[in-house]
Design a binder for these strands. Structure first.
Lengths: 134, 134
DNA sequence: CTACCTCTTAGAGGTAACTCTAAGTCAAGC
DNA sequence: GCTTGACTTAGAGTTACCTCTAAGAGGTAG
């Protein structure tokens, strides 16, 4: 299994080491394994989770909402440990609710971006014609 | 000519009165006319400008960049006052540069949104199938 | 061995963008 | 004529999110 130091993880996922420790402290990232000297060792699964966190954050989810999303740990791990689906249903439903809301926000943002992109293009056109014709 | 109080302007453009005064103070909005009692009176042109400001801000332009964009006043007004295009060319070129950069940022944001929207949909699908099949 | 780099921690400091407060003015309604 | 409420100002406070510092320990290169 490949393991990464905090610096490698930071470089790979585009979140600074400072921020990774901060996220761990406030409960957004699970505490990773440690090496013999007590240093953090991240797995590829950890990195995938960081990528997910970064994606939703950059598309507008607040840290508080992310916290609400992640608060009862890794679902996949629980499935592997044969926790019955029945017990996971509340978690799953909450996650579905949060992601559905976030999806709506992202669709709205995308729509606004498209509108402002169009308006900006037309403004640029009018500036260009002022320069060439005016 | 229709005139609006700061509260009406705030309501119409979706920026609070506090923020409108703040924007004026830091030079993002031109000082509007005042009534006999010294209160701000906004024109429809002022409102259109607020809408523009809000659009670029919400799509990720910083107040500093907006300041750089607006810093030498209303170009249309100068054109009406018969300022020769030659004198306006530096302003126009700077505005074109800023808007072109912002357009690129918006396109990148839109692309990221599309990717995260797709990833989120697929995650939602997998949650739904855990609930129904798992 | 010593210098250097990166790691650890708790907690302080910084930044962007508001958001509100305090103290006071002004005009309208009762 | 007095209250109400919106307005004015300068400037302090708030929020979200980092970002860094200080103090100290472990491992590596010269």
């Amino acid at each position: 299994m490949i393991l990464f130091t905090i610096r490698e993880a930071a470089e790979k996922c585009g979140i600074s080491s400072y921020t990774l420790r901060y996220y761990e402290k406030i409960g957004l990232l699970p505490p990773p394994k440690r090496d013999s000297a007590g240093r953090r060792c991240y797995t590829e699964t950890d990195l995938r989770f960081m990528w997910f966190l970064k994606s939703v954050k950059e598309t507008g989810m607040s840290l508080e909402e992310i916290h609400e999303f992640v608060k009862d740990g890794c679902i996949m791990e629980k499935i592997h440990l044969d926790v019955p689906i029945k017990e996971l249903t509340p978690s799953l439903n909450r996650r579905i609710e949060i992601l559905t809301k976030h999806l709506e926000n992202m669709e709205a943002k995308k729509k606004e971006l498209e509108e402002v992109i169009a308006a900006t293009k037309s403004k640029l056109d009018s500036y260009h014609s002022m320069l060439s014709e005016g």
